[in-house]
């Protein structure tokens, strides 16, 4: 078709644009450890090292070579998937990340799905019925969401559902010790358990997930609901809504096919922003629920100056954000036909 060609080109162009960003990320994560105060060799050699073993480590890590050469070595390591060893866990950083990143992603994504499922209909309802109880409810939820810190909500939920009512499992990690963790396929317990057909474990994992995910959802729900409401109000007052109504279209069509699809763009933008700050903000949630996620991993690594782990974390997160932004931008082109042409 005629119109698909420039859009395809814009899409490819957008994908190509992320390549320099990835290169930049690699350079920064490389320079980070070199720029931080102190001698990495001293840290990597360990606490009990003497001068000779530090020197040995330095040579082994290639830190005695000039910077450009070190960079080439670093990129070579990256290509092979080698991010170095973590001092605190004693395992390779790649393994640590492979275990912990899915845990964080599972938590964040579940929270976001929960938030979207509640916030978007709430925002739409509030916009179509301004001044009614739905609108007020929306306002209350939004205010509560932004004003309650996640660690407080988390502790409150634990207090109510675990301590008082006893219906939630103990907030200790991703799975109660009575279950065996499912085989590692995606690292998402819910998906892995479902793939194995082990519904017992699936329920166990879901039970563990529900409180931290609700905590994070309440936090992320606020901006999404607010943006949905505002975008819907703008869309509903547009001229084309009047045209659609004057043409006798049913209120369902007007609301969803005309107004909502136009309101989707700012909502998707907000979703992207919320996702990135949720990934950062869930450190607190992970701490409260003893969730073995990437946030708590990074904090622990920073505290003990575990540079390889920090470096791996920075790289992983940066790549994740680049990918996320790419997905959001591609979503834009899917939603709004006008965007493909502005991309150049």
């Amino acid at each position: 078709m005629l119109s698909s060609h420039p859009r395809l080109r814009a899409t490819l162009w957008r994908v190509a644009q992320s390549i320099p960003v990835v290169i930049g990320v690699v350079v920064i994560s490389f320079l980070l450890t070199r720029a931080l105060p102190g001698d990495p060799a001293v840290y990597f050699a360990g606490v009990a090292a003497d001068a000779a073993s530090i020197e040995e480590t330095r040579v082994a890590m290639g830190l005695d070579k000039p910077l450009p050469q070190q960079f080439v070595l670093y990129v070579g390591d990256l290509m092979r998937g080698d991010l170095g060893m973590s001092l605190s866990s004693g395992r390779s950083v790649v393994d640590d990340l492979a275990n912990r990143l899915p845990a964080s992603l599972e938590l964040t994504l579940t929270a976001l799905v929960l938030a979207v499922v509640i916030a978007v209909p709430l925002g739409v309802l509030a916009a179509t019925r301004p001044g009614t109880w739905v609108d007020h409810l929306c306002r209350v939820v939004v205010t509560a969401g932004v004003s309650l810190p996640t660690f407080f909500t988390g502790i409150l939920l634990i207090y109510i559902f675990y301590y008082l009512m006893g219906i939630a499992p103990s907030p200790l990690g991703r799975l109660d010790f009575i279950y065996l963790s499912p085989d590692h396929v995606t690292g998402f317990y819910l998906i892995d358990a479902a793939l194995m057909g082990d519904w017992e474990t699936w329920r166990g994992a879901a039970k563990q997930l529900i409180l931290p995910a609700s905590t994070l959802a309440l936090f992320t729900l606020a901006p999404i609901a607010r943006m949905t409401r505002a975008a819907m109000l703008t869309a509903l007052s547009s001229d084309f809504i009047r045209t659609a109504r004057a043409a006798g279209l049913s209120s369902r069509t007007v609301l969803y096919r005309y107004a909502f699809r136009n309101a989707l763009l700012p909502v998707v933008t907000t979703l992207g922003m919320v996702f990135s700050f949720a990934l950062g903000a869930n450190v607190l949630v992970e701490k409260v629920f003893a969730w073995p996620g990437i946030g708590s991993y990074a904090v622990e690594a920073l505290v003990v100056s575990d540079y390889a782990a920090v470096q791996g974390f920075v790289l992983a997160m940066a790549l994740l954000f680049v990918a996320l932004n790419l997905v959001i931008d591609l979503l834009y082109t899917a939603i709004d036909p006008r965007i493909g042409f502005d991309a150049k």
């Binding site: 045209t243 004057a246 939603i335």
Partner: peptide, 16 residues
């Protein structure tokens, strides 16, 4: 009864 409006470009759904 049907209507046509001023500012025709705004009167049409921009993404349909």
């Amino acid at each position: 009864i049907s209507m046509i409006f001023q500012n025709p470009r705004a009167a049409l759904n921009p993404i349909r």
